[in-house]
Design a binder for these strands. Structure first.
Lengths: 198, 198
DNA sequence: CTGCCTGATGTCAGTTGCTGTCATCAACTA
DNA sequence: TAGTTGATGACAGCAACTGACATCAGGCAG
């Protein structure tokens, strides 16, 4: 087994953390001129790399903004799996989503900037939606592992995501960022009120 | 006011219904080789037209499969708007979605083929999702016009779409196509059971 | 110490989706 | 009969992506 050694004195072949530099470059350019008005060549150039290298790190131009989503997904799923068995499915999902909300809030300004970028581009919205759909699928799986049967599991997951979406949307529209987990709880209550058969 | 006259004898400059021919060509090619493996040039060629003309009729390669969606959207919205005022929001939405389900069912095999194509391509799924999101937005608007306040309106619309998605998905997975409106009703009942906070 | 190997990057050529611009010309209109 | 219009073609060009091969610092085996 070998140990990674970082050499601080001798010149390396390349500057380190090219992926991180690409991410930074992309986000700042998207912020400056908008997503559609920046080319991958420009991103690569600002990062001191080539276009080809960009595509080695990110599947496509949009993916830069969604690379971090996996961690959030894992957080949510682990929270759902770890929730007490006594908790009904919707509430288990709520636990996961609130944890995600809290995590998002801790990241400062970036999530809201990012959300505004997405709102400004149909292409990015499409990507966001399919990521959320994937999350819903993972959520449904987690519910099935809790013993929830399948029509109910998918439905609960999908509806949970809908609640989450609306809460995040409202959170983004606020002038001053409010309490996201609280917004999620509120939305879920609203949902209950709305579906409660008359 | 002028009357459209169709000349059956004299040669026209172009074969009629180029848009329809493009649509047919695209759908059959997508079915034969899959969406990703067919180029717009091939579609245009099969339709006896040029690539440029394809893009005059359809905003992009995917849009061919979603062109008809507008009518369905209008159907749903008009059903919701026309539902008795006494009906609670969720049920008004249900009326619209069931009508859509019935309309889809009447179209024979095509909707299920189309759905299978979409399921086979991430790109198409993205488009599908954003179309459904647009539908949810229109639905929410229709609810607001019924006097439903906004957090509830968006939530109801979004959740209605989630129910619809799941029902259609299950319908597509069946060997023999079952009763879609019924599936929608069932899914909604499931939802009620699931959200009924104990 | 030497020489091979590996992995991250560069280079380059090519495909495809999509757009702008201008030309064409049958059918309609005045 | 002359002018206009609208659907199409022709063509050039950009940007997103992909495949194939070259490069070479750093690590590793001997």
């Amino acid at each position: 087994m070998s140990v990674a050694v970082i050499n601080y004195d001798q010149p390396m072949r390349w500057e380190p953390d090219s992926r991180g530099r690409l991410e930074q470059a992309a986000i700042s350019l998207y912020g400056e001129r908008g997503f559609e008005n920046t080319t991958v060549a420009e991103i690569a150039s600002r990062a001191g790399l080539t276009e080809r290298t960009f595509f080695r790190h990110f599947a496509d131009k949009r993916e830069v903004l969604f690379a971090g989503g996996l961690l959030l997904q894992e957080l949510i799923v682990s929270e759902v799996s770890g929730a007490p068995d006594s908790l009904p499915p919707v509430d288990a999902v709520a636990v996961g989503l609130e944890a995600a909300g809290a995590a998002i809030q801790e990241r400062g300004d970036y999530p809201r900037q990012r959300q505004r970028m997405i709102a400004a581009s149909a292409e990015l919205q499409e990507r966001e939606l399919i990521k959320l759909a994937a999350l819903a699928a993972r959520l449904a799986e987690a519910l099935r592992e809790r013993g929830v049967d399948d029509p109910a599991a998918s439905l609960t997951a999908e509806v949970g995501i809908a609640v989450f979406r609306i809460a995040v949307e409202r959170w983004n529209e606020e002038d001053e960022p409010g309490d996201l987990p609280q917004l999620i709880r509120d939305s879920l209550d609203q949902l209950r009120a709305v579906t409660a058969g008359r």
